[in-house]
Amino acid sequence: MDNDKIGQIIDKYQGEASSLIQILLDIQHENHWLPRSALEVVSKKLNLPLSKVQQTATFYKAFSVVPIGRHEIHVCKGTACHVNGAQDLLEEVEEVTGIKPGETDPDAKFSLKTVNCLGRCGLGPVIEIDGKTHARMSPAEISDALKKYE
């Protein structure tokens, strides 16, 4: 992510240090994660110690300070999804992507996460890819669906 883009985001909030969380959220949204270089720019422009920016960036689960892939896969492990075979689904996703929950593949194509409930319990087992819900998935179906992502 280039510094101009970060600069634009910061300008949008008039460079107010009190908008730190909002600025980090916007960068995270654009870039999927918060590289150290981005935090350094934010720290400089907002005139905040880098340590304080890091403190905030590591505090919230919404932020990631490690690389996240272009596509984010959320496998629901809620009770309803669990009884409908979420575990088999997760294992299939791990097999296809070659990564475990919490990991990102070396090409930064996929990041895998398990979530506790997506609130679509009637559609289980549910997988969300880049915010799009895939309902009542079977391992074979999710394997096909994942192949479509570049």
Partner: peptide
């Protein structure tokens, strides 16, 4: 007023 050491994570 240096903020050299902070809490990280939660």
């Amino acid at each position: 007023k240096k903020n050299a050491v902070v809490f990280v994570k939660s």
